[in-house]
Design a binder for these strands. Structure first.
Lengths: 135, 135
DNA sequence: GTTAGTGCAAATGATTTGCAAACAG
DNA sequence: CTGTTTGCAAATCATTTGCACTAAC
């Protein structure tokens, strides 16, 4: 769990903790604001750097919102998966699908593509948010 | 084909033409540069505005590159589809998959999500580009 | 003529980076 | 101590916008 040459600091602990109590996907800005709201002072740059590190270590999932912001959430599952994300509140369900993975591999194979990666996210309104159109 | 209140201008024609002779996905910046290379002078803002309009009209496909840039290409197919895109040269194949669409609908239904949209793109190296690692 | 379209330069906004000070191990 | 990490402010960079001007129809 501890990574080569990484030191544990107050800031990293706080960011980690903040992520742990979230079910939603958060942007770096939101996370920074959330910390600030609790009087935990961490520089915005540090939030970005830490999230970037967590991403590299595969500790957080990252998706892109419709308007291009990066959104982060701690991985519940270790294996590869996708997400069903609420456009309004950010809550997300993890999705697994052999059919999807098979489709990806097959499409790549047929076209002779190699070094494949893929993205697949579903966005919509969760039950709660569709009840309160402008909550 | 002609849209309500839209005028045909030299710039729009040029942008359209430039898109038409491309198989690849291009960023607004690349498109602007491509026009400039041919001595066709069009403001960068105009390129952005025109691409945005084409997107709204559903005339171009838009995907996000790994680093967040928007990439555009004319739709070959009218129906909904996804892409297999070469990370190096940008060439893209159009993909259709009932299995994928079914998976999306099913996942949304199971979780009670509504107003669904989804993204699904595959990135890799095409045959040509995997032959010339750093072409 | 009207009104939409254009170019430019300035404004945005998320993310990154330089660098000196602060801190973990 | 010594090398990381941080914070802040300045720098990036794609994209957007304000506005006076030009051009379609």
């Amino acid at each position: 769990m501890t990574v080569e040459g990484q030191r544990m600091t107050r800031q990293r602990g706080a960011i980690r903790a903040a992520l742990e109590e979230q079910t939603r996907f958060l942007s770096a800005q939101e996370l920074h604001a959330a910390l600030g709201a609790r009087r935990i002072r961490v520089g915005l740059a540090t939030v970005y750097r830490t999230l970037q590190a967590l991403e590299t270590q595969g500790e957080v999932d990252v998706i892109r919102s419709a308007d291009g912001e990066s959104l982060y959430r701690l991985c519940a599952a270790d294996e590869h998966h996708h997400h069903l994300v609420c456009r309004t509140c950010g809550t997300a369900a993890e999705l697994h699908s052999d059919a999807l993975e098979t489709w990806v591999d097959e499409a790549a194979r047929v076209h002779g593509f190699s070094a494949i990666t893929h993205t697949a996210e579903i966005f919509g309104l969760c039950l709660e948010c569709s009840d309160q159109p402008r909550g």
